[in-house]
Design a protein around this nucleic acid. Structure first.
Length: 827
RNA sequence: GCCCUGGUGGCGGAAUCGGUAGACGCGUCGGACUUAAAAUCCGGUUGGAGUUAAAUCCAGUGCCAGUUCAAGUCUGGCCCAGGGCACCA
């Protein structure tokens, strides 16, 4: 074994050997239990960033640990390779999105291999390749046939910068998730997936996800936004229309003093009197012009105009006016709101501004309020509510809704905030939506045997204001699969999140050309046992994938209902306290780290300083420190290489004669136990690494006190070093393989069994008894762990220190914690 | 406004059950080796008091209370930081 550590040399060498020998291939047929470890696959943007390095290293260590523990591990990688950056790059540089994407994939693949990740590359999936998007299209057609994909005209989010519509989930604070451009509303006919059909089960099944963090589950719960209430229908006085409203406060129905409809409300023109028409039209035109950000701002002063018409409250017979105001949202509930200013802060503000009346119907009996200063929104008892007076408002909700049901003007209603998923995009670089439009036959799905609908190559990327795909001469015009007449292809492509909603299923059967995946294979490998990725997908990708899994189960394509059993959302990689980004100029290029220190140092460092779920602060000194540590490990092994053999006996407790040898043996067992537990318990790799360091320090200490080694010494040392190599092998993958090989180990260290500890040895030979007086530590005594409670007590009381401090005082009580501590309470 | 997460030395962070606060590392200070430097090795490093040096004592896990023999850990109230949601009726 060489004296010095040359990571660049050994890393390349082993990467090549592993690839040639197929060390990381995953057989489908194995007696071993399966384990599926998955990182969120990357968008091939050009180069890996440190966030990728962190994500993939975490998953890789998990995969290797599970493999050593006897699992048949599936650990695949692929590319989320459709999407706008490729198209934008093509427009800018006159290149082709496909070329740009292929080059990036090639470069990033090289980087992934340099990191020493244990992927089975035979299962690689690339969403922009026809052999993948064929199946994305096929799945779309299955959803279409089930009525889960449909086209409709709706107010949709439009990003002018990206030249396309966006899903609700992709609008962050009224801005585009990708380019930060302000999103506008447009009325367009678009394709949607009916995720709302699954709103209830998506919510309910969150309870099954015990391996997910509460933060992600709560975010999904909020996004789905279930609320329970009632629909009431109000008759219009001036004509025979009805206005239905949704409310979560049916208990306040007697307090209605006006009613608000959204400016986009469908019947608004019929509800407007001729005298009010001009003002209403003006108000609606202004509302249209406003951006979503302005419109949804809660600190904006509320505005509105009266329509001139009125409704009757069927509970009271009272007549109240109709208004339009943009604080009512067209897309939620019925688009109309019953206003109870006494008990709703928003209605209160509005009523105050326009001098609308206010009627108190809920009161706190202890502290009644007239609601003149502010709305009373707390629980209370009903007043001014006819037969419901005196009822607690929670009970009244049910009773009042029941009355509306009995009398035929209302019903119980559960409402969700979740909207259907808008999946069509007016862009080129995506999976074409496989439908055609025929003048005679209407919308026609492309027959399955004609899939994939290939992306055309004859497109002009320099066009502005429309999707490049529309410039293709070969693509748009086609024939109708139904009547054979002329027809036009759908030119919209699918949101990339559709492609990424099923990729984890494809890994189970990546080369299948008959189906997206065989049912037996997908059922065998899924669900994913451990999914690792960024928190930014808490709603987007993770919600869509859950929906896809449930929909595909209902289509009979698979037999499970949740795709990801355990989820680890790793923290961000920061430098100087803020997220690494090109614009801030605080990025660190992984290539430079590989070149200067090697992949093992990068892997060790990215796991060392913070637990995986927390943000990680990059420091150059930290990298340096990890590099030094690996050198130290190398020296430890290489300097004693001739003293290490693989034939050491298995030691039992008390067998070793020399105290220091017994001590080292115990420290190794303590390390095995600690490291195994730290990995098993939420993957606390930072403490795993500190335990590597402790063990290395302990071996150095032991070695420093020895000059000549006898057989017992050599055996203990061999056990310690070989165990260290195994324990470190999931992290320092190349160094440990080289050492394993150089010491004469058989096969690959990565195919060894994970070491086991002996409970009798995984502890110190004696205990340190802590002696407290009144809860404060006063003395520590080395003691035999076999001592009884009484003996421990006697030992503590015999301490000179204790005698001194308790002299002349009254011992009230003595608490003994076995093997640990004695607390003497004195007065 | 609502919801979540976090707050421990100069810094990153440790601390199964309530039981030695500060593991491990970074930084820093001192020492060894060296003609010198680098590398390496050894040692100190929460604050304050104390001492030639030590022993030793006191305080200390965002703040204020509480429970307990014992609280970083449990309970109640508050403050701060980060994140999510938000005219969703």
């Amino acid at each position: 074994m060489k004296d010095a550590y040359f990571p660049q040399e050994i890393e390349k060498k082993w990467q090549k050997i592993w690839e040639e020998k197929g060390v990381f291939k995953t057989p489908d047929d194995s007696e071993k239990p399966k384990y599926y470890a998955l990182s969120m696959f990357p968008y091939p943007s050009g180069k890996l960033h440190m966030g990728h390095v962190r994500n993939y290293t975490i998953t890789d260590v998990i995969a290797r640990f599970k493999k050593m523990n006897g699992y048949n591990v599936l650990h695949p990688m692929g590319w989320d390779s459709f999407g706008l950056p490729a198209e934008n790059a093509a427009m800018k540089h006159g290149a082709n999105p496909e070329t740009w994407t292929d080059e990036n994939i090639a470069y990033m693949t090289k980087q992934l291999k340099m990191l020493g990740l244990s992927y089975d590359w035979d299962r690689e999936v690339t969403t922009c390749k026809p052999d993948y998007y064929k199946w994305t299209q096929w799945l779309f057609l299955q959803l279409y046939k089930k009525g889960l994909a449909y086209k409709k005209e709706a107010a949709v989010n439009w990003c002018e910068e990206c030249g396309t519509v966006l899903a609700n989930e992709q609008v962050i604070d009224g801005k585009c998730w990708r380019c930060d451009h302000v999103v506008e509303k447009k009325y367009l006919s678009q394709w949607f997936l009916k995720i709302t059909d699954y709103a209830e089960v998506l919510l309910e099944d969150l309870d099954k996800l015990t391996g997910w963090g509460d933060n992600v589950k709560i975010m999904q719960e909020n996004w789905i936004g279930k609320s329970q209430g009632a629909i009431f229908r109000f008759k219009v006085v001036e004509n025979d229309l009805e206005v239905p409203v949704y409310t979560t406060r049916p208990d306040t129905v007697h307090g209605i003093t006006y009613l608000v409809v959204a400016p986009e409300y469908k019947d608004i023109e019929k509800l407007t009197t001729p005298e009010n028409k001009e003002a209403v039209e003006l108000y609606r035109a202004n509302a249209r012009k406003m951006t979503e950000i302005e419109r949804l701002s809660t600190d904006r002063v509320k505005t509105g105009v009266p329509l001139g018409t009125h409704c009757i409250n069927p509970f009271t017979g009272e007549k109240f006016p109709l208004w339009t105001a943009d604080y009512a949202l067209a897309e939620y509930g019925t688009g109309a709101v019953m206003a109870v200013p006494a008990h709703d802060t928003r209605d209160f503000d509005f009523a105050k501004k326009y001098n609308l009346p206010l009627k108190v119907v809920i009161q706190n009996p202890e502290n009644p309020s007239d609601c003149k200063e502010e709305a009373y929104t707390e629980p209370g008892v009903l007043v001014n509510s006819n037969e419901f007076n005196g009822m607690k408002n929670e009970e009244a909700k049910k009773a009042i809704t029941q009355k509306s049901v009995d009398e035929g003007f209302g019903e119980f209603k559960t409402q969700y905030r979740l909207r259907d998923w808008l999946v069509s995009r007016q862009r080129y670089w995506g999976a074409p939506i496989p439908v055609v439009y025929c003048e005679k036959c209407g919308i026609q799905p492309v027959p399955e045997d004609q899939l994939p609908v290939m992306l055309p190559k004859d497109v002009d990327f320099s066009v502005v204001g429309k999707s490049p795909i529309t410039t293709s001469k070969t693509f748009v015009n086609t024939t109708c699969p139904c009547c054979g007449g002329p027809a036009k292809r759908e030119t919209d492509t699918m949101d990339t999140f559709v492609c990424s909603s099923w990729y984890y299923l494809r890994y189970s059967d990546a080369k299948n050309d008959k189906l997206p995946f065989a049912k037996d294979k997908v059922n065998k490998w899924l669900p994913v046992d451990q999914y690792v990725g960024g928190i930014e997908h808490a709603i987007l990708h993770l919600l869509y994938s859950r929906f896809f899994t449930k929909a595909l189960r209902d289509l009979g394509l698979l037999d499970f209902d949740e795709p990801f059993k355990n989820l680890l959302t790793q923290g961000m990689v920061l430098k100087d306290g803020s997220k690494m980004s090109k614009s801030k100029g605080n990025t660190v290029d992984p290539d430079e780290i590989f070149e200067n220190y090697g992949a093992d140092t990068a892997r060790l460092f990215i796991l060392s300083d913070s637990p995986p779920a927390r943000d990680f602060d990059w420091s150059d000194a930290g990298v340096e420190g990890c590099y030094k540590f690996l050198n130290r490990v190398w020296r430890l092994i290489s300097s004693d290489a001739e003293n290490i053999n693989f034939n050491y006996p298995k030691f039992a407790a008390g067998e070793l004669k020399k105290k220091d040898n017994d001590n080292l043996l115990r420290l190794v067992h303590i390390a095995i136990k600690g490291i195994t537990n730290d990995i098993s318990n939420d993957f606390q790799f930072n403490t795993v690494i500190s335990k590597y360091r402790e063990l290395v320090n302990a071996i150095y200490d032991w070695r420093g006190k020895k000059s000549d080694l006898d057989d017992e010494d050599r055996n203990v040392l061999s056990f310690a070093i070989i165990t260290l190599i195994k324990l470190m092998s999931p992290v320092a993958v190349h160094l440990t393989e080289e050492a394993w090989h150089e010491l004469g180990g058989e096969g690959s260290v990565h195919e060894q069994e994970w070491p086991m500890w002996d409970d009798n040895l995984a502890k110190a030979s004696s205990i340190t008894l802590v002696v407290q007086i009144n809860g404060k530590v006063k003395d520590k005594i080395e003691a035999d762990e076999a001592l009884s409670e009484d003996e421990l007590k006697a030992l503590a009381l015999s301490s000179a220190k204790v005698k001194e401090l308790t002299a002349g005082k009254n011992i009230v009580k003595t608490i003994v914690v076995p093997k640990k501590l004695v607390n003497i309470v004195v007065k």
